[in-house]
């Protein structure tokens, strides 16, 4: 009963807050496979929302729909008060510049050095002078503790360093919304914890609203203000870490054991 009350309070609070992202009746299928059936979701400004769910439950599809990498079949995807499925490609690109996306693999540009990787998102900002650009790159690297790697190639970096560099590249545009696709996958527990703390730091420093897709419960515990769990294309559970950890539903609890 207590859990339900907490959950209701949380929902009311989210409703009251300004939303950065709002999904209404989002649907996505791949041929006969219905990945997202009816997703309704609000991400409040400054909130860290963790999305849990079994592999193949559509977590990554959800955030890829948000940046237009995958076209939704139906529903509204409202980001910065605009339905992105109805925007022109120029408008979509403007919106994308305010959204950071950390890919599972880091998605670093192999043919470019660390410096060039960081400069890449800023390349069409003609008004930035070289000295200013250098300062921004150095600052972004310092934020993730990678200052010494500035002239290295991505192939010379470890898994954790690649993730941190991916985060630095995303943060260089100072996005208002951050989407993390399994940020700690493939990392050892210590590095995973470092990345999770970094996500929290980013939220505090830049007041970003974030959606974090993860299987790592430790990461969810550190970063989440709210957690949702997807099952069979629907939103199966929602609440704070504490709520869901003590849920009466065995299936929900199994994520936290």
């Amino acid at each position: 009963m207590e859990t339900k009350t907490d959950h209701t309070i949380l929902k009311t609070e989210i409703e009251k807050m300004n939303s950065a992202v709002e999904l209404k009746h989002l649907k996505k299928s791949f041929k006969d496979k219905h990945v997202l059936i009816d997703i309704n979701l609000k991400l409040a400004k400054g909130e860290n929302l963790v999305v849990l769910g079994k592999s193949g439950s559509g977590k990554s599809v959800l955030i890829k729909c948000l940046v237009g990498l995958i076209d939704a079949d139906d529903g509204e995807l409202i980001v910065f008060d605009k339905n992105i499925s109805e925007t022109s490609s120029d408008e979509l690109n403007t919106i994308r510049k305010k959204i950071g996306f950390l890919f599972q693999s880091g998605a670093l540009y192999d043919s470019m050095s660390v410096r060039e990787n960081l400069e890449f998102p800023l390349r069409d900002q003609k008004k930035i002078f070289k000295a200013e650009l250098n300062k921004l790159v150095e600052e972004a690297l310092a934020d993730v503790g990678l200052s010494e790697a500035i002239d290295k190639m991505p192939s010379e970096l470890s898994g954790g360093m690649r993730k941190r560099l991916g985060l630095a590249r995303t943060m260089i545009l100072k996005p208002e919304i951050m989407l993390y696709d399994e940020p700690t996958t493939g990392l050892d527990p210590i590095t995973s914890k470092e990345i999770s703390k970094l996500i929290l730091e980013v939220q505090k420093k830049y007041n970003t609203s974030s959606i974090i897709i993860t299987h790592d419960i430790e990461c969810a515990k550190i970063t989440a203000n709210r957690i949702i769990i997807l099952k069979d294309g629907l939103l199966a559970a929602e609440g704070t870490f504490k709520n869901l950890e003590k849920s009466e539903d065995k299936w929900v609890r199994s994520f936290f054991e």
């Binding site: 994308r96 890919f103 998605a107 540009y109």
Partner: peptide
């Protein structure tokens, strides 16, 4: 091979979401 591996490692997607065509 280069473009296919860029696609596999999501580098093309990363360019797209950073607002580059």
């Amino acid at each position: 091979a280069e473009l296919a591996s860029m696609k596999v490692t999501e580098q093309i997607d990363a360019m797209e979401v950073s607002g580059t065509n």
